[in-house]
Amino acid sequence: MRVQLAALVSGLIFGVGLTISRMIDPSKIIGFLDVTGAWDPSLALVMIGALAVTLPAFAIARRHETTLFQSKLQLPTRNDIDPPLVIGAILFGIGWGIGGFCPGPALSALAFGLIKPMVFVAAMIVGMVGVQVLSKNPD
């Protein structure tokens, strides 16, 4: 139960961060990506703020090897740059540029009850399930 509760609080804090930083607003994302237009560097500061916490957080976690609840850390171990990584990142980048939504902000934007975030999330889920159905080792 405490595991789920901690995950809920983590998601809430993460989502409040997305909301306050306006990452839930696609026009804000497009403003950052539009480097030759009226460029808005805000997203760079969001990344710097987040990394200021995650860089030390991962370094500390690595030294302890277990979580505060005494469970094992489950971190990815791969270091190779393979074609799926490259192709996937490119496809994601095209989609992100077209809609201004990436997965986290799109889920938070469902809270507005607007049709557009719902359509985006539905299509994203279809895409994810499609890959998982066709792929032999998901993850």
């Binding site: 595991v3 804090i13 930083s21 009226a38 916490v53 991962f58 979580t67 094992k72």
Partner: peptide
């Protein structure tokens, strides 16, 4: 140029995104 730049809310929001990520890592691994 840069009339839409919101440095304070971006930085505060970013810190919260980092804290949410750190909490999930430290509790759920």
């Amino acid at each position: 140029m840069m009339e839409n730049f919101t440095p304070v809310s971006a930085l505060v929001g970013g810190l919260l995104i980092g804290i949410g990520s750190a909490l999930l890592l430290w509790t759920n691994g």
